[in-house]
């Protein structure tokens, strides 16, 4: 069980949070203009990386805010947290 540094509340136990899958997948603004394949790409395709992964988390049993986490899935080490709308760290 890891400790997540919520950008709004600070360090809390993992059990207070819920994971929300890969980050930075933006819902298309005009879904009706997409082909089946393009829509399927948005809807179904997700990365499952061994290593550095950008993902969404929500502080369910806390402030209920969504934010982004950079996690190394091979050892669960969290490299960075940042708010929704902020640019992902490059390093």
């Amino acid at each position: 069980m890891f400790v997540i540094n919520c950008p709004y509340c600070g360090e809390r136990e993992q059990s207070e949070f819920k994971a929300g899958g890969e980050a930075h997948i933006v819902r298309p603004k005009q879904p009706t203009e997409l082909s089946d394949d393009q829509w399927a790409e948005y809807l179904f395709m997700r990365k499952n990386i061994k290593g550095i992964q950008f993902e969404r988390w929500v502080h369910t049993h806390g402030c209920r805010k969504w934010f982004n986490v950079v996690r190394d899935t091979s050892n669960d080490m969290i490299k960075a947290v940042y708010k929704m709308g902020e640019k992902p760290p490059t390093k």
Binding site: K18, V26, R56, V58, T60, R64, W66, M84, G85
Partner: peptide, 13 residues
């Protein structure tokens, strides 16, 4: 509630 909050915060802030 969780789903509605998700859309509000991430897609339609």
């Amino acid at each position: 509630l969780g789903k509605l909050e998700d859309y509000l915060q991430t897609e339609w802030p």
